[in-house]
Every structure is written in C-alpha cells, then in structure tokens.
Design a protein around this nucleic acid. Structure first.
Lengths: 225, 225
DNA sequence: CATTTCATGTCGCGG
DNA sequence: CCGCGACGTGAAATG
C-alpha cells in the first residue's frame, strides 16, 4: 500500500470521460495495482479510481512533469495522473486482510421467515422458498389456514420497488389456475409510508418484521436440540 | 485529511453489524469527520466506513488500548476502532476540491436517437425530446408513418425497471384523447431477456441501439456541413 | 462464465 | 427534506 499526497490533475477515459482539475489530493495505490484518488470530502467513493486488474506506469509528460498512466488490463480504461507537486509519498506493508464478517442481511431474514412463516400471518405454512416463476423467484410461497396461496416478498427496507416486484409476481401467479387466487404479503424490517400506501391500494398486506425477535425465536428453538 | 496506518480491529453497528479482526490497515479521516478503513486489496470500497455527518471521539478502552468511536449524528450508526499499534499518523491540508467534470454516454445516446429516430422504426419522426407528463418526462415522443403517437424510453442497459417506467408513461399518455392510442418502444444498447419478455407481454416493442453506428451516422452527417 | 440480485449502495436532480 | 432514477454502479451468489 502506497500513499501519496500530491497536487495533481486526473483524466479518466473508459465508459465515460472525466476530468479533475489540478488540486491537492490523496492517491492510494494498493498492492494489486489499483489506484484511488480521494479528496478531503464526499463519502467513501473516490473522485476517480482504477479497479484491478490494472498496471501503473510512471513516467513524464512532454514538459517533464511526473505522469502516471494506469491502464485496466481487461477493459482498456485508462487513468492519467499528472503530478505537479508531491507533498508526501510513503509505502506500508499491510499483509492479507482476514476479511469482513457481516450479520443481518436479507438472506438471513429470508431464512428466519422461512422457518417461522406464522409470524407473517396466523396459520401460514411454507410451501417453498425461492418459488420459481418466469420473471424470477418469489421469496416465499405459502398457504394460509384456508388453503389459499400467499406470495411473500421480503426486503430489509420496504420501498416502492419491492411492491412493484411483488405486484408483477402476483399478476403472473394469478394467471395460473392451479394457484389462483394468490394474495401477497410485503414483509420488511421497516416499510416506508409510500410503499405501504401503494401496497394497500393493490390489496397487498404489509408485515413489519422484528429481526432480533426472529433471531431470538431461532436461538430458543436451537437450544431445544 | 489524516492518514493513519495501524494494526486495528473494527466493529460496525448500524443497518447491519460487521466485524473486522485485528490486522494492519489504512485509516483515512476526512475533513468532515468521515472515516474509511482500507485494506491492501479489494476495490475502491473500503472494508468499513462511516459517512458524514459524523463525529470521531478518541479515547481508550478498559485495557488502555487506543479506541476511536465514530458515530453518525444522523442515523446513530457507530464504528468502533481499536488501535493496537500505530505505524504512521500524518495530517495534510488539501483544501476544497474543484470537483469532477463528467461527459457521459446516457445523454449523448438520447441526443443521437433524437436526431435519427428512424433507426428505432421506419418512418418514425420526432415530435419532442423530454416530452413532459405528470409523472416525469418521456425521453422521446414520436409519430410513426401512420401518424400514431409513439413514446420511446431510452436506457443504456435495458432492464425491467425501464419497462415499468415506460408502462407508467404509456398508461398516463393513453388517457389523453389527443394522443391516444400511444404505443411504446423500449430502446437500449442491450436488453436483458427478462425485460424483453415483460415488454413483449405488455405490447411494447424493443429496439437494440448500436451506439457506435449512430455516432458514425452523426459524424457522416456533420461532414456534409 | 453469464446472469441476476443485493448493497451500510452512493449520488444528483427535481418537487 | 423526500422520492426517484442513474451509476465507470460494485460484489456476491447462482445456474
């Protein structure tokens, strides 16, 4: 890992072209050759960058100014960095990172709900997870106490897209005489008001899911075995 | 901008929880207080981060180890960084960045198709670009050889969202007796199978656009003047 | 390897 | 401030 603080100008050419006027920035060069150009603001996204695999060639332009050219070995995208003044240039041995451990994503939520479908509605029984349709899999297909089909769409955060998605599934599923009538449940840890309005308007019910409670149920169950 | 190279452990709690075991990494602290944790690989996305607005509190844990706690002032998300050993710690004055100048493909594609609507369908004539409706502008409004209205939605990559968008426009436009009947064309440089199925099912035709060929037509035309 | 879906998405625009 | 769409989306899982 090499860190350079320098007054520089950057030009990118690839799927689009982009230009950064001369200013002081931080250049991060990772062990795999990838380059990040960061300013002192914004968020985690660099102003400009080159993803691996790529190669960095250090040279000089016609005026003798230091020039780096980073080229993607795969796509041919290029990043040209003109270094007017280097304030700092240091390298550090980092070693391989053990990696990130995450907890609490949609997949886990789907697993928990698949194991406890009744939390979505009394008497609900799981028929199948990732129920296949022509336009993609329905997260959960269930049957209610009356034996009617229920399609469940699960999101971490319930927004309008999710309702649209479930609507498409329902439209398709309801054309199948073996399944119809199919009703829908939109399940999420939190549901935005607009999404709730749209869902309700389309006869889709909403279920707010308590992730911690579900995990608790799961743990309690696991302890029995 | 402060750059710290340190052996550290990181724990994030927010929309999800995530843990980084003890290892040597680069910590980037921007002027607005935001923090990025980078390893020597991956891509431009940090292993962990905190977006502004946030505050960084430096202190020590119960064992006397240096501990940073970064808290989002808005969402309450927190990032806890334990620093076992600091290899380097430097600060740099960067100043305000003049910002990125982009020259994209999306808008250009719309301009080219506006100039050559017949490539989307024989006899097609442009009525207006960015045709206004209550729910947003239609990319291109045209008329075909028979004088019927045609709404065109343009995407670089044709996916299901684009079909949904065009469907909403068509539904609205077809309520206008001066325009109706309006048919739709979904134009993109590439159209995903699922999007094509949905479009076809809804009576929307698909047009795959050759960007380079269009640009070539435009250049040839420009040479005449 | 192509494709689809998820993301602590982020970013920017318009109402 | 919120909704919505684009992104050099990237990255992971899956067939």
């Amino acid at each position: 890992m090499r860190l350079v603080v320098a007054r520089c100008q950057v030009d990118y050419a690839g799927r689009l072209t982009a230009h950064l006027p001369m200013a002081t920035r931080v250049l991060m060069i990772k062990a795999d050759g990838s380059v990040l150009v960061h300013s002192d603001g914004g968020s985690y996204k660099p102003l400009n960058w080159m993803s691996p695999p790529c190669t960095l060639a250090e040279g000089h332009d016609e005026n003798g100014t230091a020039e780096w050219v980073v080229t993607s070995t795969k796509t041919g995208d290029s990043l040209r960095i003109l270094l007017e003044e280097v304030h700092s240039d240091s390298s550090h041995e980092l070693g391989v990172d053990p990696g990130l451990v995450k907890d609490g994503v949609e997949k886990h939520l789907q697993e928990l709900l698949a194991e406890h479908p009744a939390t979505l509605g009394e008497g609900l029984v799981l028929v199948r997870r990732e129920f296949p349709t022509a336009i993609g899999p329905v997260d959960l297909m269930c049957r209610d106490a009356e034996g009617r089909s229920v399609a469940v769409e699960i999101k971490r955060r319930g927004e309008i897209d999710g309702v649209e998605q479930l609507t498409r599934y329902l439209e398709l599923l309801n054309r199948d005489p073996l399944l119809a009538p199919v009703r829908g449940i939109f399940a999420a840890q939190a549901i935005k008001p607009q999404a709730r309005v749209l869902a309700t308007d389309r006869g889709i019910s909403c279920a707010v899911v308590d992730y911690d409670a579900l995990r608790g149920m799961d743990d309690a169950e696991a302890r029995l075995f």
